[in-house]
Write a protein that binds this DNA or RNA. Structure first.
Lengths: 343, 343
DNA sequence: CTGAAAGCGCTTACAG
DNA sequence: CTGAAAGCGCTTACAG
């Protein structure tokens, strides 16, 4: 029953002990129907008894299948990605694939280093939220080297690979229209960047909704940059000092919204009463924030699930046409939004 | 410059093209001083030009070094672990090791599956926060199979491997004493479990501090279980309904504390004024919570850094004696604690 | 249903 | 400073 490091146990150890060939052992351990039941059981029992450990590197060298899938995101400390990862994980788990994770922190070089590692390990595929500035050529290089790619959250212009993300322009429109319908006329947009497709789409959606309602869009009312709680918190001063005092803020995401609400509360105002705030993503946290956050459900679970399935499909040899499947967001109204107050 | 999948490029492709042996190419690519400078440059340039990809599986099969380190935690969605991971990542990065991550969600079976995978991949080592109920034998099995283990956050009774964690009894004592010194006499403890060494240590520390101050410790005043924001939030009702109405709560961690503060605010009370609350960990978030959270710094960065270094040391062949290095926590006083109010 | 043998792409003594 | 050859531990045609 002991593992023991004394003599490395390999297929041939078992073959020799049982008087069969390594081919038979190999097939038996993988439950091949080519092996007689009795032989198979005898082999598996013995292997277990002496603590045999399958050497995947050797197998993978021979089969050129590694059972490894790479996952690359901006930052796992961001709960948005953490929720996506969780659902990727549960899909991958049941397929027996191991996944390797890396944060690129939007540094192209870090992303490239990791992609290199994946190629060297012979990874079977990769799911990635590409770093800002990822060129189409990087994606093509991976595909050419036999590493199938599935993108999440962000697009790479011109890359012909599946992308799973929410319909950002539509989603931010839901939040903006909600505020407009409550009577808000001066609405700011806090956070986000124009450097990503997501950032551009959300800003566009906000502008579109404002214009459709015949409302003025002041460039000042956009405070770009913040993407974290800390960022939202720190943007409070700038927001409260805006000319014409907006009565509401459409935030880049839930983190920024929660940070901003904290900042607003510190300034002695009541978020949801004095100032309305919307988030984006509907993180688990949104529902228990104070006040509970009105936000846009962005389908993280769905994004992760579909991306993982799409990749597994490709690994299974399925070469379906690429459907650029936009997930339709939903507005979840809670307590952080209300009619505009006089201030 | 094209990568191309046409003909798989390997060492011998380069050797043939340049009229040298694969041994020379192998050595040159790894900057061996055995190869003449001119030869090395010629080889490296050519390799780059034709888009050669190093096959780590083959190398690893030969050298039995994989360059892979496993990291196993309870849940990466927990910011406590995310902060530890970040510092592990930065240490490992500079050593050129790739890391594979897995959550065990305190399920022993999931942890075992992952450990199996690491053994099969020939991982060089593993850093783990062991799942509840991990027996000493599991750790020993890994070590016997050549997989060095370093533990973080939790201990495994009887396992002779390095453990990096904070001094929990001491840390919770800091929080408890702080409340006592503010004049609190009825102090509850919210969250945590007796099933882990950490859980037992923190409860013990709380009890000890209370007794030292001559205060009564009512079993009722312990609300075990919660470990997340959601959990803290949901425990609010039970906490507010406690007999003899405690004026303060020592929480299991920052997440529970923030959830509880949200719940208290929803109930119309002001955390930090009507009821004092302390956290544990000092997550980045603690400072921007409303009110800013008084908490105990638990040295996440430090835990990650030291664990990674200890593992790398062991990989480097260093067999130093095991120092059970407890990190000394520090109290960070903010706005969530104050003198007891009459209620 | 089972076995003998080649080969996946590296690295490492060993010669020269 | 460089080359020829063995071997890491599997799997896969190919025979029988």
């Amino acid at each position: 029953m002991e593992g023991g490091l004394a003599q490395k146990i390999k297929l041939s150890t078992i073959a020799d002990a049982l008087g069969v060939s390594t081919a038979t052992v190999s097939l038996a351990l993988r439950d091949s129907p080519l092996v007689a039941d009795a032989t198979r059981d005898r082999i598996k029992d013995y292997a277990r008894a002496i603590g045999y450990i399958y050497n995947r590197r050797a197998a993978s060298l021979r089969t050129s299948r590694s059972g490894i899938v790479g996952v690359v995101v901006h930052d796992i400390m961001n709960p948005f990605f953490a929720e996506i990862l969780r659902s990727i994980e549960s899909e991958l788990d049941r397929s027996g694939q191991t996944f390797i994770l890396s944060n690129h922190y939007d540094q192209l070089e870090k992303q490239r280093t990791f992609i290199d590692t994946l190629l060297q390990l012979g990874a079977d595929g990769v799911i990635m939220s590409p770093a800002i500035g990822t060129p189409r050529e990087d994606i093509e290089m991976m595909e050419e080297n036999g590493l199938p790619v599935v993108l999440i959250a962000r697009q790479v212009e011109g890359a012909l690979v599946p992308v799973f993300r929410g319909d950002d322009a539509y989603g931010i429109g839901l939040a903006t229209n909600h505020l407009i319908s409550l009577g808000h006329r001066r609405i700011a947009m806090i956070g986000g960047t124009d450097q990503t497709s997501t950032g551009r789409d959300r800003y566009r959606g906000y502008v579109l909704a404002m214009e459709k309602a015949g409302l003025e869009v002041k460039p000042d009312w956009r405070v770009p940059g913040p993407r974290t709680k800390q960022g939202g918190f720190e943007a409070t001063g700038q927001f409260l000092a805006l000319k014409d005092k907006p009565t509401a803020a459409v935030c880049w995401n839930d983190l920024v919204a929660i940070g901003l609400m904290n900042g607003i509360a510190r300034a002695g105002l009541v978020p949801g009463v004095d100032i309305s705030v919307t988030g984006y993503d509907d993180l688990e946290e949104a529902a228990i924030a104070t006040p509970a956050l009105t936000t846009v459900w962005n389908g993280q679970r769905e994004v992760g699930r579909r991306a993982a399935r799409a990749l597994l499909d490709r690994l299974g040899g399925n070469h379906e046409p690429v459907t650029p499947d936009l997930i339709r967001p939903e507005l979840h109204v809670r307590q952080s939004t209300g009619r505009p107050s006089q201030r």
